[in-house]
Design a protein around this nucleic acid. Structure first.
Length: 114
RNA sequence: CGACCAGGUUGGACAGCCGCGGAUGGGCACCGAAAGGUCCCAGAUGAGGAAAGUCCGGGCUCCACAGGGUAAGGAUAACGGGUAACGCCCGCCGGGGGUGACCCCAGGACAAGUGCAACAGAGAUAUACCGCUAACCCCUCACAUUCGUGAGGGGCAGUAAGGAUGAAAAGGUGCGGUAAGAGCGCACCCGGCCCAUGGAAACAUGGGUUUUACGAUGUAAACUCUAUCCGGAGCAACACCGUGGAGGGACAUAUAUGCUGACCCGGCAGUCCCGAGGAGGUGGCUUGAUCCCGUGAGCAAUUGCGGGGCUAGAUAGAUGGCUGUUAAAACAGAACCCGGCUUACAGACCAGUGUCGCAAU
RNA sequence: AGAGGAUUUGUGUAACGGUAGCACACCGGACUCUGACUCCGUUUGCGGGGGUUCGAAUCCCUCAUCCUCUG
């Protein structure tokens, strides 16, 4: 990961939750500019989704989606992704699709090269 | 062959690409006086039998008491052993269940005291409703008509055998006994108590139970009593470092400067030192009542001795994604560490001088 | 990580170890031309499993779910 790190501070999470997120059936995505030229990505998987093994799998898959598609993102954003219940049983490709769709809506992707 | 019973081991594999934590080693690129830090490269190795629930027991750390006792509160409960300890484990006894292998049991004391036992039933821990009954007293009737005899009713008494009940009715069965009855007496049985034998003990077996009265329902997962044990909190414990800001002290104190203010008065602003400490960081953090093999002791749990191994230490929390082959593939993710218990769980494998049934020999 | 509490009908809540009530809702009936209000009546329940007891919503153990608190 070239220009990204994990978002760990609770107060930044709180700040992002107050912004308007993008959502679909699987995920909710919050994004906000920070002042650096790196991205900080946080993942929220609540206890409602299941026990620890299920939550870990969802979290690892979401991290993997970002890792594989990092090149498509603009730098300089704080991003928080919240998993919803349907994300537990979703296929990896569906997860990736909806992640990118939300990122597109939030306008944090690089313009596609023609 | 079928149906079971009890125990143990294991808990997907292989290949390719991309990726994560990381002991350690290297590059000496950058910062620094140094210690060290940042970056890059390589990289041993990297979740469980339950890591879970947090139900018990310890270690460790801090606080309290630093001696002993009592009370309160809590826990445990046949007996013997194991263990660091336990509410755990092993063995054994007693009780219950099963044709059996075998399984289950909080399994001390209601004969210290107190409470409770609905409904039903005469009566629930003591009673007398119905009943049964000799003597005595009274009344009525019949016979006789001198005493009286018989029947019925009532009173005064005796009794608890029988009686719709109930989980439970003052040991059970039989014989005697009596007006009727009753452990009132006898025989046998059950339980209690005493003695003997066996056993380490719980306990088992056998015998006795004379005299005034050995026979006292159940319930303590009701209060209670007896015996034994327990100080409290938890790694977010605790120790160390700690920018800024704030506190205290010392120095400086000028008609100066800046800010506040229209202006004056007034207030604030400097440097150094000090001990607490929020954010954050570092340690605690993994070699331990450890695991494996052999051998001795023991019925076993367990343990003595010898040899060998090191097998996660993260800190929003590392094991993932995709593809292929095989496969029906479960429950499930360490967070200070151990010993247990409980709960969840697909499949595979191992062994049983195991049990029952059927068939054959 | 640790601590405390709760679970009773569709909802909210009671009940010394012995018939599980109450209010609202639902349904049926009465009243009304119809509906509402009112009145009468019915239905529906102790989170799951095991134990103690003659008998358990209640006592004990265990599991599940939910809520709250400490940091």
């Amino acid at each position: 990961m070239k220009f990204s790190s994990a978002l760990k501070l609770n107060h930044i999470f709180q700040r992002l939750y107050r912004t308007n997120g993008q959502a679909n059936g699987y995920l909710v995505l919050y994004a906000r500019k920070n002042r650096t030229n790196t991205n900080r990505v946080g993942i929220t998987v609540s206890k409602k989704l299941g026990h620890a093994v299920v939550r870990n799998r969802v979290r690892r898959r979401l991290r993997e989606v970002y890792r594989l598609n990092e090149a498509k993102f603009q730098p300089g954003w704080d991003i928080v992704v919240v998993a919803r219940t349907k994300a537990v049983s979703a296929e990896f490709s569906r997860l990736q699709e909806s992640y990118l769709e939300l990122a597109q809506k939030a306008g944090i992707l690089l313009p596609e090269k023609q």
